[in-house]
Nucleic acid binder design. Structure first.
Lengths: 215, 215
DNA sequence: CAAACTCAATCAATCGTTTGATTAATTTTG
DNA sequence: CAAAATTAATCAAACGATTGATTGAGTTTG
């Protein structure tokens, strides 16, 4: 049946995503992945051509859902620049914490000096979001919602960096926060709203204050 | 000669640090490392026992320099909490951008679910800095330098996360900033001061403003 | 000379991939 | 309809290549 085939491929991709994110591309053997997924080793090549093909397929599957999310917020003329940024933060915190282990994959791949093609593709995808936020920040400066001398590029680094730090280094951030951040209940009910509130207060304080240059 | 021996070991460690940070632990073969370092493959095992021993030796070498840096800032009674935090930021930005590729190593290792012993050791080392900053923040709240309702834990995530984001994802941050951040001149003369100024303004705005809870 | 060092050659183990056979379901044919 | 042919899916086994590690013979050094 066609449905079963798709389900099986999807199951392999689910397992592979987890194993790759735990062990890295080189650390995860095809035997481990196929074993974990409960399928014969040869099926990986049968379905995805190669180990790298499997790796790429994981990304292909996720890309679509990444593209469209922030798309229309920037063009909404009815809300202020601050509200747009606020919406972006909400979306981003929600989305990223769901795609937990995929985020780890993306981030590790970006730190590698291998597989340039994939690195470039990921970079391109992430830049869509970066540009979207940059646009909102610039617009906010122009219409004086935000202070004129903000450092927009580094604000972007803070937005993405803060979230990445929490998610990608769970050992450290769990110690800092005093909870296991891999506990889904804590994540959903406490951490997510807390990060949202914090990010908004942090950025509001910075963006909407006059940072005079006379030190 | 004893000097030559140490120099050679250090040279191997330098090369290995670079190769590991580019290719990951599993992606970097002992042949690649020894070839890059211009030494016989067997030397790696002769000096460091094993591939993992070599990997650990890279960390051992760096640990000492990491420990002592922030140590005494927190205990200085003559400066304000804000100045302490300010000093921490300076130290941190300076140090971390120098140890560029070692940071990538640390960060990738923290995202892995392998080599628990090393992960725990790294976590422990990083926590020294975390606790130091936490202490400063708490003290600042107590003596009313900082607002009473700040989110100290997430401030820490912002400090480390912002810097990590810039350094660990050079492809993306180079695009954002419009310069190749691996260009040492740009890094030293432009980016470093810029990050310092930005971080201080960002944190000052947040920490020294009343974040009322009514919305 | 003895200890420390260096090397090419080699080891077993594991890697990603391919193979050829087998099964089961579908389509074509007489 | 029933037999034959075709197809996709699955498997155990094996492939060559590469891995980290070791060997034992040679060289250098103090």
């Amino acid at each position: 049946m066609d449905k079963d085939k798709i389900d099986k491929k999807d199951h392999i991709l689910d397992v592979a995503e987890k194993v790759f994110s735990d062990l890295g591309f080189d650390g995860a053997s095809t035997r481990t992945i196929s074993g974990e997924a409960g399928v014969n080793m040869a099926m990986l090549n049968y379905y995805f051509g190669s180990k790298e093909g499997l790796f790429l397929a994981i990304f292909e599957r996720k890309i679509a859902s990444f593209q469209t999310l922030l798309q229309n917020i920037g063009n909404d003329e009815t809300i202020t620049s601050w509200d747009k940024l606020s919406k972006c933060i909400d979306n981003y915190v929600d989305r990223i914490i769901v795609n937990n282990c995929f985020q780890k994959l993306i981030n590790r791949e970006l730190t590698m000096s291998k597989r340039w093609e994939l690195t470039d593709k990921i970079t391109q995808i992430l830049m869509v979001n970066v540009i979207e936020i940059k646009k909102i920040l610039d617009e906010g400066v122009k219409n004086k919602t935000f202070a004129k001398n903000i450092d927009a590029e580094l604000v972007i680094a803070t937005i993405f960096g803060t979230k990445n730090y929490i998610i990608n280094t769970p050992h450290v951030s769990s110690l800092i926060l005093g909870h296991d951040i891999r506990d889904e209940k804590y994540l959903e009910e406490e951490l997510k709203p807390r990060v949202k509130i914090y990010m908004k207060r942090l950025l509001q304080a910075y963006l909407m204050k006059d940072n005079d240059n006379s030190k």
